[in-house]
C-alpha cells in the first residue's frame, strides 16, 4: 500500500483538504473542457460549413510524438511521487526536472506546429475547424504552462528539502493536476488529428 502521510488533518472524510479540493477543482475543469469538447463535437456533426483539412496538413507524426512526450512526462511525474514516498529526495528532484523539461518540450513542439498551420491557411478565423483547433489546444497549452509553473514551484521546494516521506501532499496535488492536463490532451489528440 502506498505510504499515507501522518499529517492527515482530522477531517471527517479522512481525505486531506488539499486533495479533496484538488479533485473538486478537477471536476470543474472536466466541466470546462467538457463544455468546449461538446461544442466542438456538436458543431462538427451539425454545422453546414465545417471544412476539415486534409490529414497531411495536420502533421500527425509530430502530434503523435507530442502525445508521447506528455505521456512520458506523466510517468516521470508519478515516479517522482513514488520516489518521495520512499524518502528518495534525489529521485524526486530528478524525475520532477524531467517532467518539467518534457513539459517545455511539449510547448516547443506546439509553438512549431502553430506557425506551420498558419502557413497552411488554417488560422483561428479561417474556418470553424481552425477556430476550435486553436481555441482548445491554446487553452490546453495555457493549462500546460500553469502545470509547469506549479511543478517548478514544487521543484524549488523539493531542492530546499521541504518534502519528506511524511509531508509530500503538495507533490501529490501537482501530480494530480499534471495527469489531468495529460488526460485532456489524450482526448484532444484523436478528435482533432485522427477523426
Amino acid at each position: 500500500m502506498i505510504h499515507q502521510p501522518e499529517a492527515i488533518a482530522e477531517t471527517v472524510t479522512g481525505i486531506p483538504n488539499g486533495k479533496l479540493g484538488m479533485w473538486v477543482f478537477l471536476a470543474s475543469e472536466v466541466m470546462l473542457f467538457g463544455g468546449f469538447i461538446s461544442s466542438y463535437v456538436v458543431l462538427r456533426t451539425g454545422s453546414s460549413f465545417f471544412p476539415i483539412p486534409a490529414k497531411e496538413l495536420l502533421g500527425i507524426p509530430l502530434a503523435t510524438l507530442n502525445t508521447f512526450v506528455l505521456i512520458t512526462s506523466s510517468v516521470t511525474m508519478v515516479l517522482a511521487l513514488d520516489a518521495i514516498q520512499k524518502a528518495n529526495q534525489k529521485g524526486l528532484i530528478r524525475n520532477l526536472a524531467i517532467t518539467i523539461l518534457l513539459g517545455f518540450c511539449f510547448l516547443a513542439i506546439k509553438s512549431y506546429e502553430y506557425p506551420h498551420k498558419w502557413h497552411e491557411g488554417i488560422t483561428i478565423s479561417s474556418n470553424l475547424f481552425g477556430s476550435f483547433y486553436f481555441t482548445l489546444t491554446g487553452l490546453h497549452g495555457l493549462h500546460v504552462i500553469g502545470g509547469i509553473a506549479f511543478n517548478i514551484y514544487i521543484l524549488v521546494n523539493a531542492i530546499k528539502g521541504c518534502y519528506t516521506q511524511d509531508h509530500y501532499e503538495r507533490v501529490e496535488y501537482a501530480g494530480l493536476y499534471w495527469h489531468f492536463v495529460d488526460l485532456v490532451w489524450i482526448i484532444l489528440f484523436p478528435i482533432f488529428y485522427l477523426l
Binding site: 479533485w23 471536476a27 470543474s28 472536466v30 463544455g35 469538447i37
Partner: peptide
C-alpha cells in the same frame, strides 16, 4: 465527484 462531473458532461453533449 469525478463520476458526477462526467455524468453532467454526457448530459450536456
Amino acid at each position: 465527484i469525478f463520476y458526477t462531473a462526467l455524468f453532467f458532461v454526457l448530459i450536456l453533449l
